[in-house]
Amino acid sequence: MTKARDIMTADATCIGANETVLEAAKKMAQLKVGSLPICGTDEKLKGVLTDRDIVVKVLAAGKDPAAVKAGDLAQGEAVTIGADDDAAEILRTMGAHQVRRLPVIDGHTLVGIVALADVARALPDTKVGDLLEAISQN
Rank of each mutant, 00 (worst) to 15 (best):
A87F: 08
K26M: 12
G40R: 03
G112N: 06
H108W: 04
E89R: 15
T126Q: 14
P103D: 07
G82R: 12
L31C: 09
L22C: 03
A122L: 01
V119D: 01
G47F: 05
A29S: 14
H108T: 11
I38P: 13
Q30A: 13
A67S: 14
K27I: 00
T13N: 05
A122Q: 07
G112L: 04
V128E: 00
G71D: 08
A60Q: 11
R52K: 14
P37C: 09
A66N: 11
T41Y: 10
S35P: 02
K26I: 02
V79E: 12
T126F: 13
A134Q: 14
D53E: 09
L132Q: 09
T80F: 13
A4G: 01
Q137R: 15
A88I: 02
E19V: 00
T9E: 09
K32F: 02
V128Q: 00
E133S: 11
A29N: 11
G107L: 10
G82L: 08
K69S: 10
V56C: 08
D11A: 13
G71M: 01
D64V: 01
I135H: 12
V33I: 13
E77M: 10
V55A: 15
R52S: 05
T20A: 06
R100L: 08
I54D: 03
D118Y: 03
P103T: 04
G76H: 08
A117R: 14
R100A: 12
D85S: 15
A70H: 01
K27H: 04
A12S: 11
E77P: 12
L116C: 09
R92H: 13
R100C: 09
D84P: 05
S35A: 15
E19S: 14
A61R: 14
I38E: 08
H97K: 13
Q137V: 14
A87E: 12
V111C: 11
A61N: 12
K127M: 13
A134N: 08
C39H: 07
I81A: 11
D6K: 02
A10K: 13
A122F: 03
A122H: 09
G62L: 02
D118N: 15
R52P: 06
R92Y: 12
K3F: 14
L132E: 09
L123H: 08
E133F: 11
K46M: 13
T126H: 14
A60F: 10
I38T: 06
M1F: 05
V55K: 06
S35I: 00
A74E: 04
E77I: 02
T109K: 15
A17I: 00
I54P: 08
L123C: 04
L102Y: 10
R5F: 13
G62K: 04
A96L: 11
I7P: 02
